[in-house]
Design a protein around this nucleic acid. Structure first.
Lengths: 100, 100
DNA sequence: TACCTTAATTATAATATTCTAATATAATAA
DNA sequence: TTATTATATTAGAATATTATAATTAAGGTA
């Protein structure tokens, strides 16, 4: 991987909301409304960050009726967050029946 | 490390020039003019990127007469670049006597 | 002292990122 | 069909980042 690509990849990760999303999905799928509640952010904003992570290949999505579920697609981000000592558990949160 | 700090750290790294600087110093010290020649960038620009990396604690500097030598101060960045498969050797380059 | 070299700082314009609000799309239900 | 829910997209202003040029500062030498 060249410096340009590596910098682009790191830039994709380099946002607190996107790191929280990664932490939230690293134990399993989450739909957008669930992330919206968890992160307490506007729907459009969550959707935009999800699009950025998906475009970079870090997340992958799956349609489930009206919902879209996102999951981690690149395990390397976990390794990177572990090196930095990020507590991945801090974004674990139960889904309610209405959310997923 | 919280998400805000981790994102800040990654943002510091997330620039091709800064990654090239990290790769250049990971085998040993380099002075600014040497980096300037290696990277083929303007002095001011190199100095600015060095300042960004130093502020983040990724590099440390040492005065040597008229020169300032920079070295890697945080080995975690090497581990991160290895995860991404970045070829760190691509920025190795001999210093001339005039440069260091 | 004056001069030269190296590096850091400042100012600025160009570009990129981010969040919000508004709108559009898509799936489902009534 | 119309309405509702979930998500995506677009447009925008505000903010941040970047590279260049100009200036400053600091170290060494004649």
């Amino acid at each position: 991987m060249d410096y340009e690509s590596a910098a682009g990849f790191l830039k994709t990760l380099a946002h607190p909301t996107r790191l929280r999303i990664v932490a939230a999905v690293c134990k399993g799928e989450r739909c957008v409304s669930n992330l919206e509640n968890l992160l307490e952010l506007k729907q459009a904003n969550v959707s935009q960050h999800l699009a950025i992570l998906s475009r970079a290949g870090i997340l992958r999505s799956r349609r489930d009726g009206m919902r879209t579920c996102y999951r981690l697609a690149d395990e390397r981000v976990i390794a990177i967050l572990e090196i930095l000592g990020v507590e991945l558990d801090s974004e674990s949160w139960e889904c309610t029946s209405q959310e997923s």
